[in-house]
């Protein structure tokens, strides 16, 4: 790791000032991606602004038909929260599938979505549940927020404050993890909202990160069953192909994961 200067912010305002006062800064969430990236010298910020000490960014609350989760909330806290398990069990299950126990104790929702790794789990939940991302300056829909592989709509100094998930009628996540890294080879989140509309989002597979699958959404809106999506394939031409699996393999996984997610949602 190259040299860096560590700063611990105690408020969002202080974090923003520390960031803009630096020639080259990065925000540090739980550090489960950024620290390894810095160790590999793929990132070398002059200043690191740690958001881990900001209490306002932590917490889970039910808020008029929605579930609001602070950006600094760890995967472990989401996975084990009674409120999350009661309102959106699919989201609690997703958080329990991220990395391993030690990673879940440190990694945060805000850090994960701000990084927008194409194989990360959370983006699929945000898009399928129609979540709203609150930042230090504005509110964005999940689909506005995620703009491409490792790309988001966030400005350099903008901080994710919280994510608000409308509580669905039912939802579930199914993931095929890479056996070594536990990142998603393909993960599909399905959600049926209280007004009856259906959203399906896939992660791990797309070249541009998370994407919706309109054909599956239409099929499930007509008939909510695993069989309804069994014959629907996504175009392999838009999918990732690497040493872990070809695009065609991932296309097949997306259909299988979608079937499993619908079955799990019940």
């Amino acid at each position: 790791m190259y040299e860096t200067n560590y700063h611990r912010a105690s408020s969002v305002e202080e974090a923003g000032k520390l960031f803009t006062g630096s020639e080259d800064a990065k925000y540090l969430g739980g550090g489960q991606t950024l620290i390894p990236t810095m160790k590999q010298r793929l990132a070398a910020p002059v200043d690191l602004v740690d958001l881990g000490g900001i209490d306002d960014l932590k917490g889970i609350a039910e808020d008029s038909g929605a579930l609001r989760i602070g950006a600094g909330t760890t995967h472990y806290d989401v996975a084990t929260s009674d409120v999350v398990k009661r309102l959106i069990p699919g989201l609690a299950h997703l958080a329990a599938c991220i990395g391993d126990p030690a990673v879940r104790h440190m990694g945060t929702m805000g850090g994960s979505i701000a990084n927008n790794d194409p194989a990360a789990d959370y983006p699929s939940a945000l898009v399928a549940l129609g979540a709203t991302v609150t930042t230090s300056t504005r509110e964005l829909s999940a689909e506005e927020f995620f703009t491409g592989m490792f790309e988001t709509a966030l400005e350099e100094d903008e901080i994710v404050i919280a994510v608000s998930f409308p509580v669905p009628e039912k939802s579930a996540y199914s993931k095929y993890p890479n056996p070594a890294s536990r990142y998603a080879m393909a993960g599909v989140f399905v959600a049926k909202t209280k007004d009856g509309s259906v959203r399906v989002a896939a992660t791990g597979a797309g070249q541009d990160g998370v994407f919706r699958i309109a054909a599956m959404e239409q099929a499930l809106a007509e008939t909510w069953s695993a069989d309804a999506v069994a014959g629907i394939s996504v175009d392999a031409g838009d999918l990732l192909s690497d040493i872990h699996g070809t695009a065609e393999y991932r296309a097949n996984l997306v259909t299988v994961m979608a079937k499993r997610a619908v079955a799990a949602a019940g």
Partner: peptide, 21 residues
């Protein structure tokens, strides 16, 4: 996981955390 320690009662990977954190 050879580097796992507990920080404030939770297991973490101490190779993936700064001492300052």
């Amino acid at each position: 996981g050879a580097c796992v320690v507990h920080v404030n009662g939770r297991a973490v990977k101490s190779c993936t955390m700064l001492a300052a954190q």
